[in-house]
Structure formats: C-alpha cells, structure tokens
C-alpha cells in the first residue's frame, strides 16, 4: 500500500499529473473575486475566508475525476480489483495520495492567497487549520463520484454535480470555524470538531461506497 501511495503521488506530481493545475485554478478563482466585488479591503477581509474556502473546494474537485480513470484506462484497475488486499483500503490510499498531491498544496497556498483578500493573521491561521482537516473530506466524498463516473464520458462534470451538495456541510463548518476564530461570540472549537468528525465519517463512507461503485462498474 505504501508503494501505491508513492506511485500515485509521483504520477500526480509529474508533468500532466494535474497537481499544479489545481493550484493555478485556485489562484485564478481568488484573483477573479475582487474584480467581481470591488477592491474594498474591508469587504474583502470580511468575505475573504469564505472565498478561500470555496476556491479550495472547487479546486479540490477539479482533478478528482482522474482518480480512478487513469487506472481504468490502462488496465491497472483490473489488477487492483483482483488482489486479496481489501479494495476499500486501496481506495483510501489512493484518496490519501491524491489529497497529498492536490489538496495539501492548496492548504499550503491558502495563507498566501489570503493576503490578496486582506485577511488578518488569525483568520489566515484559522483558514489554514480548517482546510487542513476539512479538505480531505472533500477528496473522500469526491472519490464516490469519481468511482461512479469512472466509465462515463463527461464524468468530471457529473462528479461535481453529485459531490457539491454533499460537501455543503464541510463548507459550513469550515467557514463557521474561521468566523468563530475572528468574531468573538461565535465558537471556534465546536464547528472545528464537527469538521474533524465529518472528515472521519467520510474516511469510512467514501472508500466503502467508492469500492462498491468500482466493483459495480467493472466490465
């Protein structure tokens, strides 16, 4: 399984792997927002954390459709399906590798993009922390969509349509925790722990459902 993690990581980071593209997309989304809402720094500081979160959410979904597709196209998926090691574990490791290659860079980039949005230091730390624990949930729930859409021609679009509604709780608790860190009466720890709980929940549900979908779409 360690070998699988390293291999998937390598494939994502190499040219054509799409890890860099995710960050560029994230940057583009954040860069577009001030043009839409205007250069008012106070306004940007207020809505900034939310937009960083939304940008990260969309960027995470961007490359997810390839999660299983590349292995299906060259026949690797067949061999993975045949092994005695549980498929759920294989899926989980692939998700972790995908997150490390595409999600983690987004998390690391988020404070820098926060600078563009005039976000305060505390808020930046909060955005970083919430994305760190929350973005794996998006990859894990997205894996279900990726597995379902693995054999479909426009799988990427379908994946986003299926996964976005399910990722609303992640967004809610992520942004709420950030707001909790900035604005005094609102709590930070409570939504933060909720976020952790959701990630752990999806760490079980996502691979289970994705493995079932991969088995169902083998032909």
């Amino acid at each position: 399984m360690g070998a699988l993690f390293v291999r998937d990581l390598k494939l994502s980071l190499r040219a054509g792997g799409g890890a860099l593209l995710g960050i560029l997309f994230f940057l583009a989304v954040i860069a577009v927002i001030p043009f839409g809402v205007g250069p008012d720094l106070n306004l940007l500081a207020r809505i900034g954390p939310a937009f960083v979160w939304i940008g990260a959410l969309l960027a995470s979904l961007l490359g997810l459709d390839r999660l299983f597709q590349i292995d299906r196209e060259d026949g690797s998926l067949d061999i993975m399906l045949m092994q005695s090691s549980p498929l759920v574990l294989t899926v989980l490791v692939k998700c972790l590798a995908h997150w490390t290659a595409t999600g983690l860079p987004l998390v690391i980039a988020s404070p820098f993009l926060g600078l563009f949005m005039n976000i305060s230091g505390v808020a930046m730390a909060a955005v970083f922390a919430t994305l760190l624990v929350g973005s794996p949930a998006i990859t894990l729930i997205g894996a279900v969509g990726a597995a379902v859409a693995v054999a479909l021609p426009r799988g990427g679009l379908l994946l986003a349509v299926l996964v976005l509604p399910l990722s609303i709780p992640v967004l809610i608790f992520g942004v709420s925790a950030v707001n909790g860190a900035i604005a005094e009466p609102a709590p930070f720890l409570q939504p933060f722990l909720m976020l952790v709980a959701i990630t752990l929940f999806f760490a079980v549900l996502g691979p289970l459902a994705a493995a079932a979908a991969l088995r169902a779409s083998s032909d």
């Binding site: 279900v144 459902a209 079932a212 979908a213 169902a216």
Partner: peptide, 14 residues
C-alpha cells in the same frame, strides 16, 4: 443494469 447499482450507491450515500 450497471446504472442500477451505481445509482443505488449514490442514492444511499446521499
């Protein structure tokens, strides 16, 4: 027949 199982999985996840 394939749509059936895939849809069922997504319905249950939802």
């Amino acid at each position: 027949s394939r749509a059936a199982r895939l849809t069922a999985i997504v319905i249950l996840v939802g």
